[in-house]
């Protein structure tokens, strides 16, 4: 499986793009594992940072349901 961010030519993962970040969260709001997302290791780390920033700013929930 090709990395989503490389496929769509996304260089930077912004915490404000919550629509994209939500693709990588499970229904409880937890970040999916690399095994499930198929994102490259570098981008998975960046994704984690972006999700944590979005959570702090109240754009994404810490826990859902």
């Amino acid at each position: 499986m090709e990395c989503y961010f490389k496929k769509n030519n996304i260089k930077y993962i912004d915490y404000k793009d919550t629509e994209i970040l939500r693709k990588f969260l499970n229904p409880h709001g937890r970040l999916l594992a690399r095994k499930r997302t198929g994102v490259s290791a570098t981008n998975q780390r960046k994704l984690g940072t972006a999700v944590k920033r979005a959570r702090f700013m109240g754009l994404l929930p810490y826990i859902e349901r």
Binding site: N8, I10, K11, Y12, I13, D14, Y15, K16, D17, E19, I20, R53, F56, M57, G58
Partner: peptide
Amino acid sequence: LRFLIIKTVREDTRVPRRVV
């Protein structure tokens, strides 16, 4: 109410609307 300071780059880091 709350703020976040981050280091970033000069370019617009947001994903263009067309991709979404």
